[in-house]
Structures are given as structure tokens and as C-alpha cells.
């Protein structure tokens, strides 16, 4: 398996990037975060319609593009670079993978075109290495509450791990309450089922969360790249003490180190598209902190402007910090390596 990007992947990247450049500049993301619709469904529909990202991981026989995690990872990179508020990870990766693993084809056909959006109802902070909280059923209906779910408020279809496997519930049958979120570009919600009708479509395994963590590493790479590029441009422009601040060695060395971290994150994230346990754990343990560090360095090296609401760097910091917790913390992934790599405690 190559760690480079193929020509097809570069074409996909270019398409996603140019659409986002037009439709999702930082100012637009910022303008949306405190609105009633933090997720940008219009953008999501165009990404689905024009580029087919909603059905990327869905096999062709179910109406999707039949692509692999390699291509999905490139989309994640670009969405991370733009902190795009779209439900790609929640619908086209997590819910889709859960349905695929369960062998449920009917809902997939609805998802492939992007007309229907789904969401995997697990806490975004759930670790792939621990038991996922499942919703219990009482007679023929679901009862229970799941907190910290991403993408729920824009989902039509809820994909829910229940004690008998994986269930599908129409979103209208649940109560979905958005929560005030650290990452306002991918806010969380509380999902409550009160005697909700459901249908079990197959089994559920936390491998889905591992796949999500493997692709999240590419989003973290995209975040880190934006932070590095933006900061390098800023320090070349900003002058103090009659010179560009980027000519001070204290700043140059920090950015050189950050560049090295990004180079490593790129190799690790590319390797993680295999979704193999070791590759995912390594990438998740490495890329999460790199994205956070990149955003923190970006903020510091912008000085006062970096601390303002107006400048987009905080969107990246918040996304990076939330991503570090999502789908297993770096510590969870390192702990998993103790058995995966035979380094027992």
C-alpha cells in the first residue's frame, strides 16, 4: 500500500477544495457558528451532488461511488483544512460504516445520494477500545438518552447501537437537543428515545469507531496544515523591531519543528487508511496532539489578533481539541498499543 496520494485522489482533493474555497471560507463558517443552523446543509448537499462525497464509501450496487477509505481520507483532510461544518464524518463515515458492517443495504441506498443524512448515535468521545453505551429496548420500543452525539440535529435517520445489535430509527421519533459545544463547527447534541419505534438491521462492533478514528487522523492533518500554512504566511508579513517576525530564530525553529510534526502526521494518517488496528492507533495517538499543537502555535504566533473571535484560528483550535477527545483520546490509543504491539504494562 502506497503512502503517497494517487492522481485520482489529488483530483478528488482539488474538487473538494475548490468547492469549499467558494462556499466555505472561514468568514462563512464563523458567521454560522452562533446561528440556528451551525451545520451547513446547503454545502453538504452540494458536496454530495457535485462530488458524490455522501456515497463515497457506499458500494456501487447500492448507488454509491464504491471508493475506499483512501479517498474518504482525502475528503477528511480538505474538510479539516476548512473546518467545514458538514456531517461527512457522522453520516458518510460512521453511520455508513456501521450500516455496511451490519449488512443493511436499504438505508444505504437512501444515504448514497445525500438526500438522506444519517448519524451514528454514540457519544463522539466513545473509545473504540471500551464498551460503547447501547440503548436498551423495552418491548418493541427504544428508551434512553445518549449525550455528546455529533451530526444528530441534521440527521434524518438515526443509526443506534442497541443491546441486540444495530437499529435504525427515524429521527422524527427521537428528541434531539443541541448542546452548547466546545467545537461550534461540529456541535454535539443529546438524543433521547421515549418509546421510539426501531428496526434491528444487523450487528454492531466498535470497529466502526476505529475506522472513524483512522479517518479522523486525516482531518487532524488538514487542520494542522491550515494552521502551519496560515502562520508561516503571517510571520512573513507581520513586522516588529523593523523586521519580519518570521526572521527571528525563536519563531523559525518553532515552525520548523511544527513542519516536522506535520510531515510525520501525513505519513501516519496515510498509513491509517488501511484501518488496521496498529496503523489506526499510531495515527490517532500522533495526529490528535499534532493538530492541537499546530492550532496552539498558530494562536500564539498571531499575537493579540489570534485571541480574537474575528480571526478564524480559534475555530481550528476548538475543532482540534474536540477531535483529540473524539473516538478515543491519544492516551486510549497508546494504551491499546500495549497489546497490539506487544509492549505489555
Amino acid at each position: 500500500m502506497s503512502l503517497l496520494y494517487s492522481d485520482v485522489e489529488e483530483e478528488l482533493r482539488a474538487a473538494v477544495r475548490s468547492l469549499l474555497a467558494d462556499a466555505c471560507p472561514p468568514s462563512a463558517v464563523l458567521g454560522r457558528v452562533e446561528s440556528a443552523e451551525p451545520y451547513d446543509l446547503g454545502l453538504w448537499k452540494s458536496l454530495a451532488r457535485d462530488i458524490g462525497v455522501a456515497g463515497l464509501l457506499i458500494p456501487e450496487e447500492h448507488g454509491g461511488a464504491g471508493a475506499t477509505p483512501r479517498e474518504a481520507a482525502v475528503v477528511m483532510e480538505e474538510l479539516g483544512r476548512a473546518v467545514a461544518p458538514v456531517p461527512f464524518l457522522s453520516s458518510a463515515v460512521l453511520a455508513t460504516r456501521a450500516l455496511l458492517d451490519a449488512g443493511a443495504s436499504a438505508p444505504l441506498e437512501r444515504l448514497a445520494s445525500g438526500e438522506t443524512t444519517a448519524c451514528l448515535v454514540v457519544p463522539f468521545a466513545a473509545s473504540p477500545y471500551a464498551d460503547v453505551p447501547v440503548v436498551s429496548h423495552d418491548g418493541g420500543a427504544l428508551t434512553g438518552t445518549v449525550r455528546g452525539v455529533v451530526g444528530a440535529e441534521v440527521a434524518d435517520l438515526l443509526v443506534v447501537p442497541v443491546d441486540e445489535g444495530l437499529a435504525v430509527v427515524e429521527a422524527s421519533a427521537a428528541e434531539i437537543v443541541p448542546a452548547v459545544s466546545l467545537d461550534q463547527t461540529r456541535p454535539i447534541a443529546t438524543v433521547t428515545f421515549n418509546d421510539a419505534a426501531y428496526e434491528v438491521v444487523g450487528g454492531f462492533s466498535p470497529d466502526v469507531l476505529r475506522a472513524g478514528a483512522g479517518l479522523l487522523a486525516s482531518e487532524q492533518l488538514g487542520i494542522a496544515e491550515w494552521c502551519l500554512t496560515t502562520t508561516v504566511a503571517y510571520v512573513k508579513e507581520r513586522r516588529q523591531f523593523a523586521r519580519q517576525i518570521g526572521s527571528f530564530q525563536a519563531i523559525k525553529h518553532r515552525l520548523a519543528d511544527l513542519w516536522l510534526e506535520v510531515v510525520g502526521a501525513r505519513a501516519a494518517a496515510r498509513n491509517a487508511v488501511s484501518l488496521e488496528p496498529q496503523a489506526v492507533a499510531v495515527a490517532a495517538a500522533y495526529c490528535g496532539p499534532v493538530a492541537v499543537h499546530a492550532a496552539e502555535e498558530a494562536l500564539q504566533l498571531h499575537g493579540g489578533i489570534g485571541m480574537t473571535w474575528e480571526h478564524p484560528v480559534h475555530l481550528y483550535l476548538k475543532r482540534a481539541k474536540a477531535d483529540e477527545i473524539a473516538l478515543g483520546t491519544p492516551g486510549d490509543h497508546r494504551a491499546a498499543l500495549a497489546s497490539i504491539a506487544d509492549l505489555p504494562a
Binding site: L3, L4, G264, R270, A285, Y286, R334
Partner: peptide
């Protein structure tokens, strides 16, 4: 336990460096 935490972190760093070198050779 304290050494274990450090070992795992170093091991990840080493693995990332190995992958970086592999990617460089591919380039």
C-alpha cells in the same frame, strides 16, 4: 506504569518516523 507511558509514546514517535522514511523513499 510511568515508564510504560513513556515507552508507548516513544514507540509511537518511532513508528511515525519509520513511516515518514518509508513515504520519503516512495517519493
Amino acid at each position: 506504569p510511568a515508564m510504560h507511558q513513556r515507552l508507548l509514546k516513544l514507540w509511537v514517535d518511532a513508528e511515525v518516523m519509520r513511516l515518514t522514511a518509508v513515504r520519503l523513499r516512495e517519493q
